[in-house]
Nucleic acid binder design. Structure first.
Lengths: 222, 222, 222, 222
DNA sequence: TATGAATGAGTGTTCATTCAT
DNA sequence: AATGAATGAACACTCATTCAT
């Protein structure tokens, strides 16, 4: 992992400004995408809020679609990094699940904009639309990674089991949070954070137990 | 539930044609929204595929947004109707859950276009966009209804518990199916239907049990 | 050849309006392309001058490039038709050349806008630019046709000779008129019409004679 | 004609670099204008290919239009210089024509980029566009010079005759070469160089003869 | 009622030019 | 002098919607 402070110290003032501009565009785009959606947010809205000329956007991103892709990659990679750290700290297979779920919930409660962005991207991915090309692979890579990370929790089973488990974790978390944020607002959901984490954990664990006679078996923690 | 044949018999030929045109537009719109998404599908695509003049669309629906709303209402109400029938058939509180979940899964496997449409609408609902106005209430009403329908499964608890249960059923189903359809295709998911139904059931039931010490308690079936 | 009056009588009012709009767009585009050039003339300039909405343009032509192509085809085909008529009237091979040249000069003096449009298109055709695709073939077809039309004037020689002759006729006419219009204005050139026709005729005929020992030989008229 | 070596020796290193940069920009611009045309070639394409910063372009040329003007002037003056040298070498009035035509053809076969650039400029000159201002005078000066240079070939006639002759030489050469390059490629035309030179010579000389009874009369060489 | 020609505000994107470094 | 980040006016093209027929 990079140490930004040091890295940037090595850059010239101009280079630092470029990095800063890049960041500002991404930040503003994330905000606007979550306020108006990837479709209704215009490139000009982004540059205006970022206090930049419209042309500047295209110096940093090839197209509107490109910035969505970068945000998706950044978001998923940040989520993966946090999950990775938490999973490493887990002392038993069972705790791995808790760690992954908790991290995921907390990530989305901290970044409801990503919750919505990912939701919209998942919607787009199912369309026969150019914009979807390539993004599917990005998302799939994330799930493959998550499957690998939670593999110890279902040790001894086939790889496909871990993938199903990863899918369930992702689906339940995104699904439940989206519904609750929708009807209760982000703040309301934040207050119920513990109960939601608990609920998802139970649901996912039930999945493993139930699968024992089938394809998923839980490796009991100590 | 209505009996179309009888109803239409009572209508004049002109009126029957109108109903038929209305239906064709809705059907075609559903198809195109799920192929290209509500944004990328143009009104003209719809009328063209429906073999109608472009102006005709606006004789039946005030706007593109309006047809989305009608589709949402129709879809949710069909889903509710099927769920209602299944739940009525359930002989015990526990079976109510199974019935609701199974119906939901089967509904979306039969109508993957609704799965995607609802997904897109949920995304839109979070936006500060005119198009979202009003739709939230439609969706909320459906969940309120579902909460009421599954209430017997958590009898004795507060209303909010049933609502949480309904939310979980809806969220888990939509979430899991969306992810699986995304990466495995609708056909692949259809083949795994049983295992997905089972998984969601387990997940939802675990939720109730876990909640017993908290807020959700399962009314055991006989 | 069609008889517009009759043909249009058969069309509905709406259809007649469409034909009329199509014509107006072509006419206005021709004018503007010759005033500002194919690059500096904007689509909006065209629709504005045609007193139409901007979108209307795209109902009639796929793109700006498309209308250029249509104008090129129309212009070349009109030129070919006039040349054809004149050549048919020619009573001897030698007169064929005169007829072709005279028609060409008169065509461009009557339509200086085509003189410029064709000039611009020839310039574009040499570029490695998408817009050039396809247009080359249109132009080439015209020259092939012209070669065939003047073939009798160089009877007995190879086909390539006729093609060279056609090229010379086209090149000398366009070249000379363009230079003269440039420095003397269209009106000035119109006044010298006879001398220019005569000059080009002499030049082209000299070409044939000179080629006699080589590849071009003139078929003497009576 | 300047003697670069000597001239540059007198310059400081910095000044020499400036001259070199200036030349590189002109060379690259010529190449790109002939590949993509003066409109489609971007300033950034030029500086990039010249391996310079974009801003540098504007240190050397006021605008994109300005570099076109410089290229036109340079090209025409180089062409004039070569023609001048050849014409001086001509031992008779008749040979002056041959010299002028041969030089012109060879110049364009050596520099097909100038053939295209001049063609595009001639097109632009007819437009009511700011970019055309001033360029017309540059082109006109060249033709006035050419008229003077070929004057001996039509000695005794009015000045306007020489101008018409100059126009014909320029028009026939550019016209014919453009058409042939267009359909046969620069390489193909180069192979037919002799026959094209011969053809243009005959055409131009026929012009003089024919004009004798009118306005152009050929001063016979020995 | 049904139509589809017409519309024009709005979109993503481009590019010549500027200017702080 | 050289740079290249920033700019914003312009442009080609789109599409939901209207309305005369």
């Amino acid at each position: 992992m990079m140490i930004p402070a040091q890295e940037e110290v090595a850059l010239s003032r101009v280079a630092r400004r470029k990095v800063e501009t890049n960041r500002r565009l991404l930040k503003v785009a994330r905000q606007l995408f979550s306020e108006k959606g990837i479709y209704w947010a215009k490139v000009e809205d982004i540059t205006e809020l970022a206090d930049l000329g419209k042309g500047t956007f295209y110096k940093y991103f090839e197209s509107k679609e490109a910035i969505i892709r970068v945000l998706l990659e950044e978001g998923l990679s940040e989520l993966a990094a946090e999950t990775d750290a938490a999973v490493r700290r887990a002392s038993s297979p069972a705790k791995i699940l808790s760690a992954a779920i908790t991290t995921r919930v907390d990530f989305f409660l901290r970044h409801p904009d990503y919750l919505l962005l990912f939701h919209q991207v998942r919607g787009m991915l199912q369309l026969q639309v150019d914009a979807a090309k390539g993004l599917l692979e990005v998302y799939d890579a994330h799930l493959r990674w998550l499957a690998k990370a939670v593999r110890p929790a279902v040790e001894g089973t086939e790889a496909s089991t871990a993938r199903d488990l990863a899918t369930a974790i992702a689906a339940y978390t995104s699904g439940l949070l989206t519904y609750h944020v929708l009807f209760e607002g982000a703040e309301g959901v934040r207050r119920r954070r513990d109960s939601l984490v608990h609920a998802i954990e139970q649901s996912v664990k039930a999945l493993i137990k139930s699968g024992s006679g089938r394809s998923i078996s839980l490796k009991r923690g100590k």
